[in-house]
Amino acid sequence: MFEDFQFFVEVLISGLLTGILYSLVAIGFVLIYKASNVFNFAQGAMVLFAATTLVGISGFGLNIWFSALLTIPVMALLAYLVEILILRRMVNSTPISMFMATIGLSFVLLGLTQLIWGSGVHLLEFGLPSGQFIVGDVFINQFDLSVAAICAILVAGLVIFFQHTKVGLSLRAVAEDHQAAVSVGVSLSKVWVIVWFIAGIVCLVTGMVWGAKLGVQPALNLIALKALPVIVLGGLTSIPGAIVGGLIIGASEKLFEVFLGSAFGGATESWVPYVVAILFLLVKPSGLFGSTQIGRI
């Protein structure tokens, strides 16, 4: 019995650590949605684009961390181009046409990635530890734990940026009410470039850790699908929602697969997250951190 419990804890922890990766992808969605009201279909393509660019640059014989550093200005350029070529021209469009535009963006990025760097699987090795590590009697994967630490640092960085800098405050103001923000001098174009750039950095980090886990390959594009149930669960506008949602999805899909998966013929990870999200919505339709406005007139 005790052995069982220990195993349960191990599966749970490994699920939570994977969940953090889902959280990362979901955070990218939430950032862009909050600032520009766009549901960014190209999120997965951006992850692939970032990771492939990084691998491509390191292919010139550069150190992997230095290559990551060089990928940052590429993501800034991408954000800038998205702003002048798409967002600025579509300020007044409906959400659905914006969504279509991001589908277009996603194809452009995927095409560009394959054109420049090919479509093979590239290994991405940046020296994260890969052994096991034992706490009491529980085994924890060191790789997953380092990934979790990286994500925690990233999230902490985002929190500091949004809560404690002037630009972060302008971003929050735009997320609250973009017209009101413009009415007191905030430049929407500037805010959009910054947000898409930050989302690009989040994609880069996501691409690095997923790529290190599974190799950098076109299938990385599909991890955006993993973020959908997380967003359903956590809501499109809440970063804490994205984090907690990712953890819940990661843990539940892993526990289900390990303990009940064989009864359902295995490979349950592809559908369990959606079931969890839907069940959750039945209980709490506004999502985990669904906003209930407390206001007075």
Partner: peptide, 25 residues
Amino acid sequence: VQVLEGRRCFLGLTVDENLAVAANN
């Protein structure tokens, strides 16, 4: 500078922050 109909404050931000958004920009 326009004050919009319905006030349109940044409801989730503090009073200080609402003012700072304008001052910063």
